[in-house]
Computed example of a mutant assay.
Amino acid sequence: MTERRVILSGSTFEEEIGYARAVIDGDWVHVSGTTGFDYTTMTISANVVEQAEQALRNVGSALDEAGCSFADVVRVRYLLTDREDFQPCWPTLRRCFGDIRPAATMLVCGLADPRMKFEIEVYARQPAEPRPAPAAS
């Protein structure tokens, strides 16, 4: 039996809908579709690039809690409400994934809240050797 553990971000959506920000199953980390909401304030920017940046911060936090980083991501799925919004996000996405080159798909679809313009879902594999804990400041 493989170990299964959930990671919660504090998003009200997780409780209301009934899901986890991420699920660790063995050495695989499945990060749920993550939008640009700042979960501490439950606010979201109207700007798609700012939404992408916040979504990546949210994903990065889940990966960190799972003992991973963006370097461990093997698959990415981008969901946008408008295809014209994808290209402006490329520089932001390249900063996280440009050297890693995960398999990726972009879909245009409706999202759960009309304020949402960008959502990202990632799959990562935990590294064979645990990463050292960040140094205390």
Rank of each mutant, 00 (worst) to 15 (best):
R125E: 06
E53F: 02
V29F: 00
V122A: 13
E65P: 01
A62Q: 02
T2N: 06
T34W: 00
L79C: 11
D72C: 12
C109N: 14
A133F: 08
L93W: 13
R4D: 00
F118T: 00
L111S: 08
L79H: 12
G98P: 02
G33E: 12
G10A: 01
I7R: 04
G33K: 05
C89H: 02
F13T: 06
T40A: 12
A112K: 03
E53Q: 14
V76P: 02
E84Y: 09
I17V: 15
A136S: 13
D82Q: 03
E50K: 15
D82G: 02
I7M: 09
D82F: 01
T35Y: 05
V23I: 15
F86Y: 08
T12V: 12
C68D: 05
W90D: 08
P130D: 08
Q54P: 00
P88I: 09
L111H: 07
V122M: 09
F37P: 00
Y78Q: 08
G18V: 07
I44A: 11
D27A: 13
V108M: 11
A66P: 01
D64G: 09
M1H: 11
A46C: 09
H30S: 12
T105N: 11
S32H: 13
S69C: 14
R5C: 11
Y39Q: 00
R94E: 12
D82I: 02
E50C: 13
M116F: 03
S69K: 10
G26V: 06
R57G: 05
V31R: 02
D99N: 12
C68T: 04
A103F: 13
Q87I: 11
P134N: 09
D25V: 07
R131N: 08
A46R: 15
P134A: 09
R21V: 02
T43F: 05
V29S: 00
